[in-house]
Amino acid sequence: MRKRQKRAAPGPLEYLRRWPLQAWLVMVSVFLYAPLLTLMAFSFNDSKRNIVWKGFTLNYYEQVLHDQSLLTAFGNSLTIAAICTLVSVILGAMTALLLWRFRFSGKTVLDGAMALPIVVPEICMGVAMLVFFAKVMPWPSGLPWPLNLGAIIISHISFSFPFVAVVVRARMASFNRELEEAAKDLGAGEWMTIRDVIIPHMQPSLIAGALLAFTLSLDDFVITFFTSGPDTVTFPVKVYSMVRFSVTPEVNAASTLLIVLTVILTALALRFQGTDAVAGGHAPDPKA
């Protein structure tokens, strides 16, 4: 049916070829992109007040690259995101395997509890982590890097791994159980079946889940804000303190660098998963 529509001039349902809808799309794109693009453009602007275009410069990038506290914050963010991703993928895959494969009493309760970190408002989780690390398990201060980031890493894992579990579980729904039976008929034990049959099937979702966990961790401000101390500042927390102060070209330059990193990560997701990552499953975003 779709093919027929392509050939016919403006079919009744070809809404994309009607001008009001095209105008609407352009308007929404401008709404979404104009602020980000101006931000990026003005990071090259040779003017401290950053209002009128005065000429091209890379000065602010140089300043960013020499700003020790900003670099430390950026390094902290990447380290936290990397460790969080690793642990979240392992825990998420285990959760998915557990809920997909086994029948046990209390499963519904566990399933619901695993969805909690996804739906609980960030601020509530932030204060919960603040209280936990202040009263129950004070994270020792003065530990060498990166151990001093432990409290932040733990909180990030807590909200990331259920997302990974959702992604992996969605993938397992397409698993053909006959493959598993065949493996067992051919003499594979439980462990071997998991290693050689189930995990290979999981693989694309493990990559997708890893990218998701990495982005969630890198993006998080609210929960980090409640768990970070003066010597454990992450990039969003650092930018927050700079933004409160004023709008400066340095912030623009630092932001541009992070936007570029985001675009690269998205491109990687596309490469690993094909266009399927953005369109194919068209499952609503896992953040849902």
């Binding site: 602020p35 980000l36 993006d219 969003p236 930018v239 927050y240 933004v243 992070l258 936007i259 985001t262």
Partner: peptide, 9 residues
């Protein structure tokens, strides 16, 4: 996918 803080800024 872009950082929330950057978008707000």
């Amino acid at each position: 996918w872009t950082n929330l803080l950057i978008r707000t800024y």
